[in-house]
Amino acid sequence: MLNDLEYFEPETISDVITFLAKHGKDTKLIAGGTDLLVDMKKGKVKPKYLVNLMKIPELSHIIEDGGGLRIGATTTFREIEESKLIKEKYPLLFEAARAMGTVQIRNMATIGGNICNALPSADIPPALVALDAKAKIVGQSGERFLPLEEFFVGIRKTALESDELIREVHVKSPPAGSGTAFLKIGRTASDLATLNVAVRVTLENNGACKEVRVVVGGGVGPTLIRSKRAETLLEGKILEEPLIEKTAREVSKELKPRPTSIRASPFYKIEVSKVLVKRALMKALGRAKAGEDR
């Protein structure tokens, strides 16, 4: 059962900010509700006020401008999955979005909600980080941008202040010569990730690796892990299988899975991360070479 509460349905972002400034500590913002209501049913959170963001038009959009994409915070996973623009130009986001949940969940859950919930096993954050995504955060003191990997600070903990909300997620368009891949292991098709990996490889004209992102999620630490080691090892190099394999082994050393996960032991996650990272890099490399991604 849900606790008694007061419910608000603002129509503008500034109304939300004003409300949060006053009642931030006692308030939960609700979008899709697929995580929040489960927590509330279990009594894990008991907000005094519930502020529904779904009636705010300026929070829901997928817009391409300049060198990237702006996704409004209450854009649903289904909208991302069904966006032609995203499927064609940001296939990594498409793949990660449709790997999440079920049709019903994706119809309800929003990108902003997913990010703010900060589950270490979430599917779309690694993809976003691989595309150098930033969260556009708004609050009483104005707006700020935060690289997404800095937004996650712990298990279900974010850098968001109690008077702030995410307004948009900005994603850079993958530069020419890029290839991406998203791989996930779950026990069934619609499971939370035992492990997920999002990879972007951007090649120079001469075929060397200009830029790489290897992001591992699925409960491999309090937050997802963007492997700096992979970037150091691969950038500027010609990517070949032995180097990629070595990199994958190195990436696995950066992971710190909790021993309490029911999905898999730390040993399994680390072992399989080597495989998944390697496969994702090989797949992204192949796509970069084929010019499949823009």
Partner: peptide, 29 residues
Amino acid sequence: ALTEEFFFDDKGRVLNPSFGDYKIFSAPD
């Protein structure tokens, strides 16, 4: 045979009492 499994902690508590954590097959599987 492949996915359904109970997990207990050392106090005998069921750690996965939900369809999210105790996985039965759905159509894509």
